[in-house]
């Protein structure tokens, strides 16, 4: 564990608390893509199946359980408690275009052709693109509540911090590198670049998040 990874994980935790706070205080999930949230549940369940057969640390297990539980809870809030505030008609990204290629990629690129390893690879590839329905929705509506942009920023920071973490580990752990996680991670972080540009130039200057028409 190094500082980059710890701060990255904390940023990931923060993003979930920001999202929960947004939903609870506005009593609405407006502006949040159900599809992206459902993809995150898929990602966490597929990857953290290893809770049953691999123990890393208490920190690792607690975080995994938290990510599974909180992502399922968010789906529940969107689907039941605040269902009337969820508008599927603007959440139109076709996720089969993400799921198909991720299944294919995980069958080709994995560390061992076994059920658990293919699922692990699948979760890594799927996580890298899971934010696309959310970004697509943002693009479509052209604006977002400030709190929603803080959620996305925290999520983007989490991904960005994993990059120096990998560099640090490469140097300190004798050339250790995970090509699947690093490639997918770079792609994932890249997806946030446009968002970050608007976030830093507008939201952090006190303006509303609005995309040029």
């Amino acid at each position: 564990m190094n500082l980059f990874r710890l701060l990255g994980d904390l940023s990931h935790l923060a993003s979930i608390f920001i999202l929960l706070h947004k939903i609870q205080t506005t009593r609405s999930c407006r502006g949040i893509s159900f599809k992206t949230q459902a993809l995150y549940v898929t990602v966490f369940v597929a990857r953290y199946l290893d809770l049953f057969y691999r123990y890393v640390s208490l920190y690792n297990s607690v975080m995994k359980l938290f990510f599974i539980a909180s992502s399922v809870y968010i789906l529940y809030l969107m689907k039941y408690k605040y269902r009337p505030t969820n508008d599927p008609s603007i959440d139109t990204f076709r996720i089969e275009y993400l799921l198909g290629p991720c299944v294919l990629l995980s069958l080709i690129f994995n560390y061992k052709f076994s059920v658990t390893e293919v699922l692990w690879s699948f979760s890594i590839f799927l996580e890298s693109v899971a934010i696309l329905p959310q970004l697509f929705m943002l693009q479509r509506t052209g604006e977002a509540e400030t709190i929603t942009t803080h959620y996305l920023a925290a999520l983007g920071v989490y991904r960005a911090l994993y990059i120096p973490n990998w560099i640090y580990r490469y140097i300190t752990e004798d050339g250790v590198v995970d090509p699947i996680a690093v490639t997918a991670g770079l792609v994932q972080t890249g997806l946030y670049i446009d968002f970050f540009y608007v976030y830093f130039t507008k939201v952090l200057q006190g303006q509303k998040f609005e995309l040029p028409a």
Binding site: R5, D9, Y111, W120, R169, V176, I180
Partner: peptide, 10 residues
């Protein structure tokens, strides 16, 4: 190298 990936990360 670490062929099995960094399964200690989240």
């Amino acid at each position: 190298g670490n062929g099995n990936g960094k399964k200690d990360e989240l």
